[in-house]
Each structure stands twice: as C-alpha cells, then as structure tokens.
Computed example of a mutant assay.
Amino acid sequence: MQFISVVSVPVSDQDRAKSFYLDKLGFDLIAESTFGDEMRWIQVGIPGAQTSLTLVTWFDEMPPGSLRGLVIDCEDLDKEYRALTERGVAFLGPPSQQPGGVFAILSDPDGNLISLRQAGS
C-alpha cells in the first residue's frame, strides 16, 4: 500500500456540493465525468494535496450527511476559520484545544462534518 487517494463524501445534490467545496472551501476540481446510468464522478481536492474527495450519490449505505471523522490539517487554523466563516461556511463552534491539537468542525450543505486541525498547539 502507498497512500489514501480518494475519500467518498455522500451528498444529496452533486452540483450544490461541488459549488460548496470549490467556492466556499477553495478546493480544486480534479475530475468530472459521467459513467453508468447517468451517474457522475466529481472529484475535488485541496490544491497540491495527494488525497482527494469524490462527491457521491450512489452508495445506499452512505446516506447524505453521514460522513464523520475526516480531518484536514491547517498551518494556521485561526486564519482558516476566519476566512471560511467570512465565506459563509458553517462551523459547530470556534477552534478549541482538544487531544491532538486545535480543532474546528465545519459542516457541508448535507451535514457531513469535517474537522480542521492545527497540530502541535
């Protein structure tokens, strides 16, 4: 094994999710194509990162909004928190010290929760 390349994020509306991840979070669009019976592969990622996300609608066992436990590291969490809040990203609360660093948890339009973390603080 080498690395985790793609994590599936369950969403109800791929266009709305794509807009959120690109316009609000600042991710890049890596790939977008159709496959199967009118299904779409939409892959987004943090610029320069090795791991990306695919915005999925086709896993019955992964209902929209069920993602938990995804952690994205930040160099300056306070700066990211302020910038994302100004862009309308909803957080569960301000950054707080937790075991493993300082964390702030954001919610995408479907309620998927993503933790931003600054390690070593």
Score class of each variant (00 low, 15 high):
40 R>H: 05
45 G>N: 09
67 L>H: 05
29 L>R: 08
30 I>D: 10
50 Q>V: 15
8 S>H: 04
73 D>H: 08
28 D>P: 04
92 L>V: 02
49 A>H: 14
64 P>R: 09
83 A>L: 15
63 P>E: 03
53 L>A: 07
87 R>E: 05
30 I>F: 09
34 T>N: 08
30 I>S: 10
24 K>P: 00
39 M>V: 00
19 S>V: 13
74 C>Y: 02
47 P>Y: 02
20 F>N: 01
93 G>A: 14
23 D>V: 06
84 L>G: 00
85 T>E: 06
64 P>T: 05
40 R>M: 02
64 P>Q: 07
15 D>E: 15
55 L>W: 06
61 E>T: 04
81 Y>G: 10
35 F>A: 02
25 L>D: 06
33 S>A: 14
94 P>N: 10
42 I>W: 01
56 V>C: 10
70 L>T: 15
77 L>M: 09
92 L>Y: 00
79 K>I: 06
27 F>K: 05
63 P>N: 04
31 A>W: 12
86 E>S: 07
9 V>W: 09
53 L>G: 04
68 R>K: 08
53 L>S: 04
72 I>F: 13
38 E>C: 00
34 T>S: 13
19 S>H: 13
87 R>N: 07
51 T>G: 10
75 E>I: 10
75 E>D: 15
19 S>K: 14
51 T>M: 12
32 E>Q: 15
29 L>H: 10
28 D>A: 11
41 W>N: 07
55 L>I: 12
54 T>I: 08
95 P>C: 09
87 R>Q: 09
64 P>Y: 06
16 R>F: 02
74 C>P: 01
95 P>K: 08
57 T>M: 03
42 I>G: 04
70 L>F: 11
7 V>G: 03
54 T>G: 02
97 Q>R: 14
47 P>I: 07
63 P>T: 06
85 T>P: 01
51 T>E: 04
9 V>F: 11
80 E>H: 14
67 L>M: 14
53 L>N: 04
17 A>E: 09
11 V>Y: 07
86 E>C: 00
82 R>T: 13
18 K>V: 09
30 I>T: 13
49 A>G: 12
20 F>A: 02
80 E>Y: 14
95 P>R: 09
25 L>N: 10
52 S>C: 12
65 G>H: 05
21 Y>G: 13
36 G>A: 03
71 V>P: 03
30 I>Q: 13
90 A>D: 03
22 L>T: 12
64 P>E: 08
11 V>K: 04
95 P>T: 12
52 S>D: 07
42 I>Q: 02
88 G>Q: 10
70 L>N: 12
44 V>Q: 10
44 V>D: 08
21 Y>Q: 11
15 D>G: 08
93 G>K: 11
51 T>R: 03
9 V>K: 08
67 L>N: 03
71 V>Q: 02
73 D>I: 01
13 D>V: 07
9 V>S: 05
7 V>R: 02
64 P>G: 04
65 G>N: 05
39 M>P: 00
90 A>M: 06
38 E>I: 00
33 S>Y: 14
27 F>R: 05
13 D>W: 09
84 L>C: 01
24 K>G: 00
33 S>P: 00
26 G>Y: 07
60 D>N: 06
47 P>V: 06
83 A>K: 14
27 F>P: 05
37 D>V: 00
79 K>R: 15
16 R>K: 15
37 D>P: 00
43 Q>E: 15
